[in-house]
């Protein structure tokens, strides 16, 4: 029993990342009809927002030698030097705080990408869209590689989340029966928050209502005198921010390197397809489902029966779903059925 709960929990954080990326992919596909192979790169850029922020605030500075000291004191991050304890705690919390940097940066990148490149590809074939965004993804990751190097850059979660959460004791069960790293729990809750925010935005605001109407029938919405293109551009920006936030918060779990995006992109596409092209709830559901499945497949008991299953389970599920349920789990009728 506890093994099962542990595996479900283990799947949640990876599933949360899949769900967030797939959500953005689906938003872009549902509104603009564009298959964006550069979406993984946005996830990666988000992660590097956290790295950049951390680099900026921990820039080492040499404090001046005090009177009577034999050696100069060791270099300190300048934030700590300038702001004392406050600075130190900001450095400690650098990953969550860098969200403040990531939101405007990712929004700008998203808007620039849509206005500058993607809009010229609305009318072109899906194959062309795949190809040009694939090229863009290569360009983005090579630029990041140039500035940050090829090695993974580990980031630390705030110190208070370093340990593990004793989940079982919350429910009155035996202490230390089920333990789980704090940060992963936080990541899962954070992803629920972001997903909830996106859905609330689409469901409960007038702006979101128009966007949903545009997803259904773009032409009619246009005929009603609404500038639907502009709203879709904003949606692309939102998708980019969602991917970026997913990346920022994922850095303590997996040290980011330049090809992080590509690794996640392939899986996220599979997630989107399994969930059903153009279905937002489907993307979220499939994300968590595949994350959990993957963690079950990596149990030693399962691997004992089917060696290597943990490596291929996601693809296997995708192939099965694609062949038996052409629309995916929750795909709408008539959207990219062929």
């Amino acid at each position: 029993m506890d093994a099962i709960i542990i595996q479900i929990l283990n799947g949640l954080d990876k599933g949360a990342a899949y769900a967030l990326i797939a959500l953005g992919l689906t938003l872009v596909f549902g509104t603009l009809g564009v298959v964006n192979f550069a979406h993984g790169a946005l996830f990666m850029l988000g992660a590097f927002c956290a790295v950049t922020f951390n680099k900026i605030i921990t820039w080492p500075i040499q404090p001046p030698k005090a009177e009577g000291q034999l050696f100069a004191p060791p270099a300190k991050p300048w934030f700590e030097y300038a702001f004392g304890d406050l600075g130190a705690s900001i450095i400690n919390w650098s990953v969550p705080i860098s969200i403040l940097l990531a939101i405007p940066v990712m929004l700008l990148i998203g808007l620039a990408m849509e206005r500058g490149l993607i809009r010229h590809f609305y009318k072109r074939a899906h194959a062309d869209q795949i190809l040009v965004t694939f090229g863009l993804a290569i360009v983005l990751q090579e630029i990041v590689k140039k500035f940050f190097g090829a090695n993974p850059l580990p980031q630390n979660a705030p110190a208070m989340f370093n340990g593990t959460a004793d989940i079982a004791s919350w429910f009155g069960l035996t202490d230390m029966f089920i333990v789980y790293p704090w940060w992963r729990l936080i990541y899962f809750l954070f992803s629920l928050l972001v997903i909830g925010a996106v859905f609330a935005f689409l469901q409960f605001t007038t702006y979101g209502m128009v966007v949903r109407a545009g997803m259904r029938d773009r032409e009619t919405v246009g005929l009603l005198g609404i500038n639907i293109e502009r709203r879709f551009t904003v949606v692309f920006g939102i998708a980019s921010v969602v991917a970026g936030l997913a990346g920022v918060m994922y850095t303590p779990i997996l040290p980011p390197d330049y090809h992080l995006g590509m690794d996640f992109l392939v899986l996220s596409f599979v997630v989107v397809v399994v969930g059903g092209m153009g279905s937002l709830p489907g993307a979220v559901l499939a994300g968590f489902l595949l994350g959990i499945l993957q963690s079950f497949a990596s149990m030693n008991e399962v691997k004992g029966i089917l060696p290597g299953i943990d490596q291929i389970i996601i693809y296997l599920v995708a192939v099965t779903i694609l062949l038996t349920m052409p629309r995916g789990l929750m795909g709408r009728k008539g959207v990219m059925e062929d």
Binding site: V35, H126, I130, F269, A318, L322, L323, M336, D338
Partner: peptide, 8 residues
């Protein structure tokens, strides 16, 4: 399948 599904 065809189109993007084939690619995937």
């Amino acid at each position: 399948r065809s189109g993007i599904y084939f690619s995937i």
